[in-house]
Amino acid sequence: DYYKILGIPSGANEDEIKKAYRKMALKYHPDKNKEPNAEEKFKEIAEAYDVLSDPKKRGLYD
């Protein structure tokens, strides 16, 4: 669930989505986080943001 990945409610607005994305992206960026699964988690976060930040894609997802 993209909302769960970003840690936001399904009714989140654009600003909340952007803030959550930035926070999670910094936390899991492969250059900052050396955990083995950090890169995979970072890709999931980027995919979630891509879908939820685009009103058309978000509409299809919801």
Results as ranks from 00 to 15, higher is better:
D1G: 09
D1M: 04
Y2V: 00
Y2I: 01
Y2L: 09
Y2Q: 05
Y3E: 03
Y3W: 03
K4H: 05
K4D: 01
K4C: 10
K4V: 07
K4N: 08
I5A: 14
L6D: 02
L6V: 01
G7A: 06
S10V: 07
S10K: 06
G11R: 05
G11Y: 05
A12V: 06
N13V: 07
N13P: 08
E14V: 11
D15N: 02
D15C: 06
D15H: 05
E16A: 08
K19L: 15
Y21D: 02
R22A: 15
R22P: 03
K23H: 14
M24E: 13
M24N: 03
M24Q: 08
A25P: 03
L26P: 14
L26K: 11
L26F: 15
K27G: 10
H29S: 14
H29L: 11
H29K: 12
H29M: 12
P30F: 09
P30T: 14
K32E: 04
K32M: 01
N33H: 11
N33T: 15
N33R: 13
E35H: 04
P36D: 09
P36K: 11
P36F: 03
N37C: 09
N37E: 08
N37R: 10
N37M: 14
N37T: 06
A38L: 11
A38R: 11
A38Y: 13
E39C: 15
E39W: 11
E39P: 15
E40W: 11
E40Q: 15
K41I: 09
K41W: 06
K41R: 08
F42D: 04
F42K: 10
E44T: 05
I45S: 04
I45C: 08
I45R: 01
I45V: 07
I45E: 02
I45H: 00
A46P: 00
E47K: 14
E47S: 05
A48R: 00
Y49D: 02
D50Y: 02
D50R: 10
D50N: 12
L52I: 06
L52N: 01
L52Q: 01
D54N: 03
P55E: 08
P55D: 08
K56D: 04
K57C: 03
L60H: 13
D62L: 06
D62F: 04
